[in-house]
Amino acid sequence: MDISVFLQHCLTGISLGGAYALIAIGYTMVYGILRLINFAHGDIFMMAGYFMIFAIASFPWYIAIPIVLIATIILGVLIERVAYKPLRNAPRMSIMISAIGVSYLLQNLATYLFTALPRGYPTIPLLKKIFEIGPLSASLVTLITPVITLVLVYVLILLINHSKAGMAMRAVSKDFETAQLMGIRINQIISITFAVGSLLAAVGSILYFTDRMTVFPFSGALPGLKCFVAAVLGGIGSIPGAMLGGFVLGLGETALVAMGYSTFSDAFTFVLLILMLLIKPTGLFGEKVTDKV
């Protein structure tokens, strides 16, 4: 393979991986705190895509983007309040089923409101501008996706390690009940977690859909699953791990497509999951957790 073709594929892979990484962080944070696989996260990401379509219809892009971010945050926090909070003391099975119910609801609602036909995603001219570096050519979105991802992850890690809310978040994920006894307002911290996760999913959705061009009610389902796998790969609960997992998946998938096995690029993710669970079940950066009696 030509070196420039190879680099071109690498660029695509890293860009896809960046979007995956942003979504994976939402999964890893929620799982770290609630031990819940938030099945609805992929659909929040899909809804963010639709929000953008409607926001851009009436506003210029620099106003539309903040609107999308805020709307997605509201959606994420609302879902937590309505569907997960009442089940705080219920068996874990119930809250997992509730998460699936939300995902089912969002997909059906999107089908009902926006029809099942794919809708064109608005192109933001600035993001679509083509750059040429030697033999490589890439649109701005491809180039800035990994940069945005890295910056956001860096800021997030700083916040988690140094801010008060971040410290509380770490405490809650270590031990839910003790944190509560220490006077941490659990519900507030969980809401913040969902807000951060949804914000990153919204950024991810803008970057992802600008490349894909269309949104349809199920376009969040498979990316959502893959990003959960990315979070497991990196070690669930670890933010740098989720980012790394996202990049690994993005690169691996692009490599398979480049080699002509595009049918199996989705299967690759789950083979990777099973292999990882066999070799290193805690993921790349995960801590070993023992079951408490």
């Binding site: 119910g101 939300v102 089912y104």
Partner: peptide, 19 residues
Amino acid sequence: FRSGFRMVIFSLVLMAIVL
């Protein structure tokens, strides 16, 4: 009432049962 409303009702039923 239009196409897809039935499935929305079904998902709301699932949520209501769980909650």
